[in-house]
Deep mutational scan, measured.
Amino acid sequence: MATGGRRGAAAAPLLVAVAALLLGAAGHLYPGEVCPGMDIRNNLTRLHELENCSVIEGHLQILLMFKTRPEDFRDLSFPKLIMITDYLLLFRVYGLESLKDLFPNLTVIRGSRLFFNYALVIFEMVHLKELGLYNLMNITRGSVRIEKNNELCYLATIDWSRILDSVEDNYIVLNKDDNEECGDICPGTAKGKTNCPATVINGQFVERCWTHSHCQKVCPTICKSHGCTAEGLCCHSECLGNCSQPDDPTKCVACRNFYLDGRCVETCPPPYYHFQDWRCVNFSFCQDLHHKCKNSRRQGCHQYVIHNNKCIPECPSGYTMNSSNLLCTPCLGPCPKVCHLLEGEKTIDSVTSAQELRGCTVINGSLIINIRGGNNLAAELEANLGLIEEISGYLKIRRSYALVSLSFFRKLRLIRGETLEIGNYSFYALDNQNLRQLWDWSKHNLTITQGKLFFHYNPKLCLSEIHKMEEVSGTKGRQERNDIALKTNGDQASCENELLKFSYIRTSFDKI
């Protein structure tokens, strides 16, 4: 039985969820670079991206490699990797027998973001014989899940209580170790020597080791999670996991709180800001991140802002960003909400898709409305799209047979046209069989910064309504002859009103 693990408890099935942008060198404390989270699957090609990484700022997932063999891993080693800020997950990587050479110096898994409450997941690794993470000293947050690894031993010899604050939620089941077939031998045991430290858990006094050649490092209890030197002297209180010299914040392997210019500090002093819960960055760093993602459509890219001495992905609820200094300031009234469309555009074809934009005031991208039916549609669209004030790209209304009016965009005031449909149009209306009105132009103002209007096959939309939009939106004169079809717009509506004058002759039985 794995020490510190839980057996036999019912657990939810383990679901495996399925960018080499360097964020800056980590400095003297770390020998390499800070790398983003990685999802490495199918083959070993991307694994080489770990070569210079000291910190993975995010998670590391290595999974679904069915053609790899043990010899493929023999020359692979990433000794610079010290810390993973989120979680480490391995799933069905064939041929991998140990992690001792792959990650010989991995010391800390912070667990800032977890995989279903777990910071370390080893699942269905069919050839893994031992973990071998002999320098792993601290899992700051989260638990361990090690399950269905039929060859995995050296679990009962690990004292997880020396690595985690609590072992109650560890789930370590259905491994070879369960069948008591392992016969784990710690260093020196074969020669009758006791080389590794022994600890007591559940009444068992057991030597602690990761492999037959690597003991588990056990520091004096007084050192807590700070770690200790090879001689057993406690590291500085700002260290986490390990250090090369005692009581020196510049000799830590990793930091308990924050890293700044080669030393570990309790908090980031001005003019620095907390970033990702582990390091200090200056304003320029946060500003660069903001600008890199301002026009990016890459998933996970955030326009970072500053709030409460932190550089964070977005302002919290009730705050909006001051564009001059990136500071989050309290909103006066309802907060603006910028919604970034991942692929640059979004099609609204149902109430469900409209709900995804609920509360958005600025759309960074283009909207395509293609709704053919739905219950209580006008009210639903207004509830979900009615706060949109600005669209950076274009607005396209296409084959939306259920629409009679666009009044559900009740606050839309600006279409920038930074991206144009077919390279020309910022407003595009095609084949809307029941569209009769755009907006009530006596109450609604709309500016279209650039781009043209396109109207074709809107049989109940009168040309007068379209011409009014040209005047109000500032697009009059931009359109070419064929942009607004004269014969297919309003051709099934009563669009022309003329005053009919009647004269009559009164007659009676005795007068003409």
Rank of each mutant, 00 (worst) to 15 (best):
P36T: 13
P36V: 06
N42C: 09
S54K: 06
V55R: 01
I56V: 03
L60V: 11
L60C: 07
Q61L: 05
I62P: 00
L64Y: 01
R69C: 06
R69I: 08
D72T: 14
D72L: 07
R74D: 04
F78A: 12
K80W: 06
L81V: 05
I84V: 10
I84K: 00
D86N: 12
L90T: 13
F91Y: 06
L96S: 00
S98K: 02
F103Q: 00
L106V: 03
T107W: 02
V108L: 10
R110V: 07
N117R: 04
L120V: 04
E130R: 11
N135V: 01
L136H: 00
G142E: 00
S143T: 05
V144R: 00
E147K: 15
L164R: 03
D165A: 04
E168A: 10
I172E: 02
N175Y: 03
K176S: 04
D177C: 04
D177F: 13
C182T: 01
G183F: 15
C186L: 02
K191I: 14
G192C: 08
T194C: 14
P197C: 08
I201Y: 11
V206F: 15
C209D: 00
H214I: 08
C215F: 02
K217Y: 02
I222P: 08
I222F: 07
K224N: 03
G227R: 03
G227Y: 06
G232S: 08
L233C: 01
L233M: 04
H236E: 11
C239Y: 00
C239P: 00
C239T: 01
P249I: 06
K251R: 14
R256W: 04
P269I: 15
P270G: 10
P271T: 12
N282C: 05
F283Q: 04
C286V: 09
C286H: 01
C293S: 07
K294L: 03
N295L: 09
R298P: 07
R298C: 08
Q299F: 05
G300C: 09
C301L: 10
V305F: 10
K310N: 09
C311V: 08
E314N: 15
C315N: 06
N322M: 01
S323K: 06
S323D: 07
N325A: 15
L326S: 07
L327S: 09
P330D: 11
C335Y: 06
P336L: 10
P336W: 09
